[in-house]
Nucleic acid binder design. Structure first.
Length: 740
DNA sequence: TCATAGATTATTTTT
DNA sequence: TAATCTATGA
């Protein structure tokens, strides 16, 4: 094989991975080791050196973002047309198979994808309908059970109940749920995969076709595959040696969602002649950061083994800051960011604040707002999951497929049109008896006059509305169609009538939906192959809305500090990273402390966090944190102790700040409020405190005020407690009783 | 049918 | 604390 420019600028191991013969290969790619680069170059190599056509390549990722990036980078590298290459998520590829072979898959032609929210609603309805005790079988649990089974590749009849009543009911619900889905032509996320697996498994000609077609299959983030995805890949591969999988067992953080890290090990066992290539050279972080990451992760057992190294310099030490409470922690972060921006030439969007749980973002946000520091939060509610958007989509879904019960239930009385619980219940009853969909039940009821008076009129009006929308929009462009639906269904009015800023935001989102449709018609879509026009575009659009939550909310406006959970930070990198709340019980989270496996996953999460940082890393924690309304003492996380001390530097801000502040200014003698009573909220007014005052704290006991700084609610006092030592407390927070 | 008060509960999240 | 769900009443 001749030398190729494709191998330029790659290191030895990357080169090995890219240019290996097209057999089975596992690339263990450490954080920041150029994983995507290798994947993209590998594909180009296969096309270039092994004459594989784009048509013969299947590239699977987990997120739409990853697959979009893959396609973009491939196009940049290759230039050739990739129109016929299948690059997509497990779900989008399964979806494509099912759409193409809907008959063999025994699906209705216009089946619709439901998301987990729709799924939960369906489960809730079923539980109610069948009088299941939702204390014993909480809807969430049932949903989790169903998804879990599907992820394991199990149909209801395959689940072992062992005669257990609890399990028995679960399986029964699974069966009923599945039936309801079949009736309405609904397919949930798990079903997409399971159904496409069954389709291939049970239709040998199809399987052979795709096996012949896909000469090579590439999988990204292999450590995140679940049992079903693994089986799916294995089926498609057959006995051939045609897989390149890339992953990092140390970055497996989705075990709680069914991902099986073991699949990495299993791959080397079950796929013949697997070549293992390790990418250990890191191009992202300073060596201090890497060493810390390595030390941390070495506390986990059963690893595939990998040690990241870099030839970049030692860099800054990792800074640890112990805030006396969560507010102080956030203030340290904000102050430090300001300093980094003003004095060290960083831009705000070089900086990320990562945290374990979303609840932590609030305090951070408040502080950033107060300090006038722009920020942007990643994650949270996605575009296509917003209430108003889901409502609009439900109308569209119903137009596309009247049997879509999930959609019908959602909008039958939104906006309110006089079809109340009572009427809906009646229709459900009827649907259940006749094994009908709600729509069928509705027309039957209308036909035989089962509904009386107002209810009958309202139901008729609803079904006319949907039929009318369908008729009126024939031939319209997608965005006109959606515009029409939003208008005629009165959704716009409905949301406009909502009070507060909310209504305004919802209207904007609806307008944005119309824009999204316009963009979609013009070819901006995940799957550039399937081009369709006018109302023909509706179904593909609905599919995309269901499969891509649409988190294109980045990259406009001013420079922002980025805030996100550790989970959503995976795959990203930032020159400066703060990890906040590095405390026992929070990180590692207390829910994960029981099982050792979960603790190790927390550690991997920490590893992911640490390895996001390129130049500077700050780990912060608070000694006292307000959680669920009450203050809790926190211990620094065990993960901090697992970092080599020589790489750390503890930041001591307290002394520096308190000294130059005049105690005179904040001595609260001059404040209007009188002596503080026990139980009075500190925000009502300042307690009358001065240096030397005796106070009592509910947890620390009695102490003497020895220092003070700041003003108003944010004023802090340093108190020397008997036995507890000196503490800084925020007057707005601490429940202090003034004794003298 | 809607509104409001009390109860409940509080990881992580793609698709 | 705060958000969300449930139950109850007008």
């Amino acid at each position: 094989m001749s030398e190729s420019p494709l191998l330029d600028h790659l290191n030895t191991h990357q080169r090995e991975a890219v240019s290996a013969p097209p057999g089975n290969m596992l690339v263990l790619a450490g954080a920041g080791s150029g994983k995507t680069r290798v994947l993209v170059h590998r594909i180009a190599w296969l096309m270039d050196q092994h004459q594989m056509s784009p048509y013969a390549i299947l590239s699977v990722t987990f997120t739409n973002k990853a697959s979009r990036e893959m396609r973009t980078r491939l196009e940049a590298l290759n230039g050739a047309s990739l129109r016929h290459m299948w690059v997509g998520t497990f779900h989008s590829i399964s979806h494509r198979l099912l759409r193409t072979h809907w008959q063999e898959a025994r699906l209705p032609e216009h089946f619709q994808i439901i998301d987990s929210d729709d799924q939960l609603r369906m489960v809730k309805r079923l539980l109610k309908q069948h009088n299941v005790d939702d204390e014993r079988w909480p809807p969430k649990q049932v949903q989790y059970f169903i998804s879990g089974c599907k992820e394991e590749g199990l149909r209801a009849h395959q689940v072992q109940t062992h005669g257990d009543a609890y399990m028995g009911k679960m399986v029964e619900m699974y069966e009923l749920y599945q039936l309801a889905c079949e009736r309405g032509g609904l397919v949930d996320f798990g079903e997409l995969l399971l159904r496409s697996l069954e389709l291939l498994r049970d239709t040998p000609p199809l399987l052979n076709h795709y096996r012949e077609r896909f000469a090579h299959i590439l999988v990204d983030e292999f450590q995140d595959t679940n049992t079903l995805q693994y089986a799916w890949l294995k089926l498609l591969a057959g006995n051939r040696e045609c897989m390149t999988v890339v992953g990092d067992d140390d970055q497996s953080i989705y075990g709680w969602r069914g991902a099986r890290v073991e699949n990495i090990q299993r791959f080397t066992d079950e796929f013949a002649n697997t070549r293992v290539v390790r990418l250990e050279q890191n191009y992202r972080s300073s060596s201090a950061i890497l060493e810390a990451a390595n030390a941390l992760i070495s506390n986990n057992g059963g690893r595939m083994g990998k040690n990241l190294w870099t030839d970049s310099g030692r860099g800054e030490r990792i800074r640890i800051y112990a805030g006396f409470n969560d507010i102080d922690e956030s203030r340290f972060i904000a102050d430090t960011i300001r300093e980094l921006v003003n004095e060290h030439g960083y831009s705000r969007d070089d900086v990320a604040i990562l945290y374990r749980s979303n609840a932590q973002s609030r305090v951070l946000e408040e502080t950033l707002i107060r300090q006038g520091m722009p920020y942007r939060i990643y994650g949270g509610q996605r575009f296509y999951e917003r209430l108003e958007i889901k409502n609009a989509l439900a109308y569209l879904r119903l137009m596309n497929n009247r049997e879509d019960d999930a959609a019908l239930e959602r909008v039958i009385n939104v906006p309110a049109r006089g079809i109340g619980m009572r009427t809906v219940e009646q229709l459900r009853e009827r649907a259940r008896y006749g094994n009908l969909t709600m729509w069928q039940a509705m027309s039957d009821a209308a036909a035989d006059g089962a509904l009386k008076g107002r209810a009958a009129t309202a139901v008729r009006a609803f079904s006319d509305l949907i039929d009318g929308l369908d008729n009126d929009t024939a031939g319209m462009a997608l965005h006109e169609l959606v515009e029409h639906v939003i208008h005629v269904s009165a959704l716009r009015e409905h949301h406009a009538a909502e009070k507060g800023e909310k209504g305004q935001a919802r209207l904007e989102n609806l307008a944005e939906l119309v824009n999204a449709c316009r963009a979609f018609s013009q070819g901006e879509r995940m799957d550039p192959n399937a081009v369709s026009e006018g109302a023909e575009a509706l179904e593909p659009f609905l599919a995309e809305a269901a499969l891509d939550a649409g988190d294109h909310e980045a990259a406009e406006g001013e420079e922002c500090v980025q805030m996100m959970t550790l989970h959503s930070a995976k795959g990203l990198e930032f020159p400066v990273v703060f990890v906040a709340g590095v405390e026992e019980g929070l990180f590692p989270h207390k829910m994960s402390l029981e099982e050792p496996g979960r603790l190790e996953e927390e550690r991997r999460l920490c590893y992911v966090g640490v390895t996001r940082a390129m130049q500077r890393l700050y780990l912060t924690y608070a000694e006292l944190r307000r959680m669920h309304g009450k203050e809790t003492f926190q211990r620094p996380s065990r993960f901090l102790r697992e970092l080599p001390e020589e790489l750390l530097e503890e930041v001591r801000l307290r002394g520096q700040i308190s000294r130059p502040v005049s105690t005179q200014r904040t001595t609260p003698n001059r404040r209007p409020s009188g002596p503080r009573q026990e139980g009075v909220d500190a925000s009502d007014g300042m307690p009358a405190l001065s240096l030397g005052s005796m106070v009592r704290h509910p947890l620390f006991g009695e102490g003497v005020v020895i220092n003070a700084e700041g003003q108003g609610e944010r004023a802090r006092v340093q108190i020397s407690f008997e036995g507890e030592g000196d503490k800084w407390l925020v007057l707005g927070f601490a429940k202090l009783e003034v004794l003298s």
